[in-house]
Design a protein around this nucleic acid. Structure first.
Lengths: 241, 241
DNA sequence: AAATACAGTTGATATATATCAATGTGACCA
DNA sequence: TGGTCACATTGATATATATCAACTGTATTT
């Protein structure tokens, strides 16, 4: 049910392919066989359902009551929130196969607004149902613990690499290699990357201006580390990034 | 068994008071009554033991095999790791009453080195024993899930406020109010704060030089937001920070 | 108490990035 | 096809912070 987005500019191209369940961040929780030796299909039990969204659609709002975790089976999204000054601030991006909403567990409210960057598809997992199941199935609880720890580990890695970066170029390098790394973890093409977000969003996220981002990209291109044409980035040398 | 530190400079002052168990980050897991209606004292079951360390002592090394979580019942510590360039990088600080080591759960290895900043005391919680107990007690598993989600929420908050900060002064403001906030959460004095770490460590953590940190502190002092004398900071106006 | 060492502050200049402005590029529409 | 719009890049200057250096204060040692 692909459709043209009404509001945001988005070339009505073929919808990017779905990720294989096997490669999804939610898989450890969904996979039936992992739940001990009792056959128990979480995906069926919790009526896990796929939900299409269009580019620009808001998946959840900052301060909304926490209900569900969302796995992006196709497309991508941006996380943003309002800073003290009342300005919007990009705090992260969610890529195909990744999980969103975990950061609402602690407070019971989503700390950010999640907006689809392109036409995307979501797997919706009501969290209270998941917990109910976990109460009955200790191995499932273990999987959730594992899931959360992996997630916070990923968050810490990004934070660290971006905070370690002193110059703008280093930040951009860190950003690109982080994206590539995440593609690798999801068994996706990590050499030819499509940055579905705008330059302004990336710059905001990295704490630099879009102008210096642009300059850094051309620099990386001159150094033969990447090839950049519009939103598509070809990574020539990931190691040297 | 307090003693003079051999290696690092640390005035042999009276050891800072222990935090009340009630105010410790580990309390939701330790507290016996919360574990359903069965009387089960995790602290006793897991032979939770207090362990004193001296200023400069390393609690765990980067890449060490993950064994235990550590709650700082007194004192403070710094988290650091080696960046790609081979240089040490401060990635965080652990204050009295806080938990350390959670970020090792995902990989099974500590991602950072944790070093005591002053004479401190630790509560050591062997994680595999905790998981064994959780496998038998679903409510305990729920507490662990909660603990991890709270932790990652805290990490996200710091990251966000530091990344949002554009200028050096904003970073320093964010740092100080974060420390104050964490004191509040642990029911500690949040007006008179002792920054046990060096200026160099703080600057490294914030991604600025110690010189600009120093200048920012004097600026904040001139603006009557704080009073700074050495490692002691008196917060005059937390809201305006 | 004087001497030493180190942490922290303050000062002068260099440099990277923000800012302001102009130009370029691709997508969509009439 | 040409026109319009938003987005991206490139250019020139201003500004904040890094760097280098001197100095001060505090704690430790003899």
């Amino acid at each position: 049910m692909t459709s043209k987005a009404s509001m945001p500019p988005q070339k009505s191209r073929t919808l990017s392919s779905h990720i294989a369940c096997r490669d999804c961040a939610l898989y450890p929780v969904c996979e039936p066989t992992t739940i001990g030796n009792t056959a128990f299909d979480i995906a069926e039990q919790l009526l896990l359902k796929k939900h299409p969204v269009k580019a620009g659609d808001i998946i959840y709002h900052e301060a909304d009551r926490f209900e569900s975790l969302y796995a992006l089976t196709s497309g991508s999204a941006k996380e943003e929130c309002l800073s003290k000054n009342g300005e919007k601030q990009i705090v992260g991006f969610k890529l195909k196969g990744e999980l969103a909403g975990q950061n609402a567990i602690a407070t019971g409210h989503y700390p950010h607004t999640l907006t689809a960057l392109e036409d995307s598809t979501l797997c919706v997992l009501p969290f209270h149902k998941l917990l109910d199941s976990a109460n009955a199935l200790p191995p499932l609880a273990m999987q959730i613990i594992k899931l959360l720890s992996i997630d916070s580990h990923h968050e810490a890695k990004i934070r660290q690499s971006l905070m370690t970066a002193k110059t703008a170029e280093e930040k951009v390098r860190a950003f690109i290699s982080n994206i590539a790394q995440r593609h690798i973890e999801r068994n996706l093409n990590s050499v030819d990357i499509r940055l579905s977000m705008s330059r302004t969003d990336i710059a905001d996220y990295l704490g630099i201006t879009k102008e210096t981002l642009s300059r850094s990209l051309t620099l990386l291109q001159q150094k033969d580390l990447i090839e950049s044409s519009g939103k598509n980035i070809h990574i020539i040398d990931l190691l040297r990034l």
